[in-house]
């Protein structure tokens, strides 16, 4: 474990709880893409199947349980409890256009042709594009609530910190995973546009609105 990965995991945890609290407190999921949340739930479920078979540490197992539980809870709040506030008119990204190609790629490009490894690879590839429905929804509505932009900033920062973690681990531990690094770069690059808007607008107290 290193500071980059620890701060990255905490940033990830913060993002998930900022969103969960926003929906719970405001009793509304306006401006939030339920499709992205479904993809994130799929990412965690397919990635943490080794939860009971491959014990790394208490921290690792605890975080896996928290990530799965909080993301499933978010999907539940959006599609069941506060379904009336779900903005399906703007959450129209065809996620099958993400899941199918990612699934195919996971079969073709992986470290080991075993079920667990292919599911892990699928999860890594899917996570890199899982935010697209959310970014697409913001581009359609033209703006995002400030709390939602904080959620996105924390979520985007987590994988950027993981990139630093992989640089650190490469030089100090000789650890390198090309699939995770490439997917992590793609994932972080997708946030660049948002990061620019967040830093130039939200940091100065303005609302995040995309140029019309």
């Amino acid at each position: 474990m290193n500071i980059f990965r620890l701060v990255g995991d905490l940033s990830h945890l913060l993002a998930i709880f900022v969103l969960l609290l926003k929906i719970w407190k405001s009793r509304s999921c306006a401006g939030v893409s339920g499709k992205s949340q479904i993809l994130f739930a799929l990412v965690f479920i397919t990635r943490y199947l080794d939860l009971f078979t491959n014990f790394i540490s208490v921290y690792n197992s605890l975080m896996k349980v928290i990530f799965i539980a909080s993301t499933v809870a978010t999907v539940y709040l959006m599609y069941i409890k506060f379904k009336a506030t779900y903005d399906s008119n703007h959450d129209t990204f065809r996620i099958e256009f993400l899941v199918v190609p990612v699934g195919g790629l996971a079969f073709l490009v992986n470290h080991d042709f075993t079920p667990l490894e292919i599911l892990w690879t699928f999860s890594i590839y899917l996570e890199s594009v899982a935010i697209l429905p959310q970014l697409f929804m913001i581009s359609k509505t033209g703006e995002a609530e400030t709390i939602t932009s904080h959620y996105l900033f924390a979520l985007g920062s987590y994988r950027a910190l993981y990139l630093l973690n992989w640089i650190y681990r490469y030089y100090f531990e000789g650890y390198f995973d090309l699939i995770a690094v490439v997917a992590g770069c793609v994932q972080t690059i997708l946030y660049c546009d948002f990061f620019y808007l967040y830093i130039t607008k939200v940091m100065w107290g303005k609302k995040l609105s995309l140029p019309a």
Binding site: N54, I56, N60, G174, Y175
Partner: peptide, 10 residues
């Protein structure tokens, strides 16, 4: 190489 298969990251 073995170390890589140990998925120790979230």
């Amino acid at each position: 190489k073995k170390a890589k298969n140990k998925k120790d990251e979230l």
